[in-house]
């Protein structure tokens, strides 16, 4: 192995690695696991239904209203996922953004991990190696949520009543503050990169805020669902023009 430009993983053709067949197999494997789980759960619900006073119709209504309620959010997730294909490739986006995780945590984890590797997520130094580190960190981070669920669910089942005695501040305000701090910090870290980065950040934030305001004002909750996708797309459009005006990395 040499330290020349040909050293492994120094190519910035991230998608060549991100769309490898094995990653596709792993992504489709997660689809399969969720399908199996869904089938087992539906059968279990059908068996339990009559004895707890839920008819087949009730169960169908539950299934259907869950499905219908998911249409808007699912399409919204699709748009967000499409905008991240260039960073993580299709299999990575399917599993990390579409399934297990969410755009916020996964992009956050990827940005922090590439930063730890001395690169910038999506920057000129975002190499195949940087992608591998980011994808690994996102996946292990997601695994931590699953692990916490596996450990805590049985514990909570046994101690449900005790939970109500925990200081409510601990369960609401503290994690809320942690989330705000994480994403404000990640966002502000984008500011020194260029004016175009700052434009994308501010435009994304402004559109999201506007969507939330309109959703409340016009009493249309679907506006909120679409807010994230719209914010990302309009943030990108704003960044495109800022870049064109010579305020960014000089791509356009």
């Amino acid at each position: 192995m040499t330290l020349l430009a040909a050293s492994p993983g120094s190519s910035t053709d991230v998608l060549a690695v991100a769309n490898m067949p094995l990653l596709w197999a792993s992504a489709l494997g997660v689809f399969l696991v969720i399908i199996v789980q869904t089938i087992i759960y539906m059968r279990a619900a059908r068996r339990a239904g009559p004895d707890i006073g839920m008819s087949r119709d009730d169960l169908s209504v539950a299934f259907r209203s869950g499905a219908v309620a998911a249409i808007g959010p699912s399409v919204a997730v699709v748009i967000v996922a499409l905008s991240l294909l260039a960073l993580f490739g299709t299999p990575g986006v399917l599993v990390r953004i579409g399934l297990i995780g969410s755009v916020a945590y996964e992009t956050g984890a990827a940005s922090i991990a590439t930063g730890a590797a001395g690169a910038e997520l999506g920057g000129p130094d975002y190499t195949q190696t940087a992608f591998a580190i980011a994808f690994f960190a996102m996946s292990v981070g997601g695994a931590m949520w699953m692990l916490a669920t596996l450990i805590f669910t049985p514990v909570l089942q046994r101690s449900e009543k005790k939970l109500t005695r925990v200081n409510p501040l601990l369960l609401t305000i503290v994690p809320g503050a942690a989330l705000i701090a994480a994403f404000l910090s990640l966002g502000i870290a984008e500011v020194p990169k260029s004016v175009a980065h700052t434009t994308a950040l501010l435009c994304g934030g402004a559109v999201m805020g506007l969507a939330a305001f309109l959703a409340v004002r016009l009493r249309r909750s679907w506006i909120r669902e679409w807010g994230l996708g719209a914010a990302i797309l309009l943030g990108l459009v704003a960044a495109y023009f800022a870049d064109q005006a010579g305020l960014g990395l000089g791509i356009v």
Partner: peptide, 18 residues
């Protein structure tokens, strides 16, 4: 353009959401 600027766009939106 997407690769370079999608990250700040996501963080701006997500921070406001939080």
């Amino acid at each position: 353009v997407v690769r370079s600027y999608v990250v700040p766009a996501v963080f701006g939106a997500v921070a406001v959401q939080a």
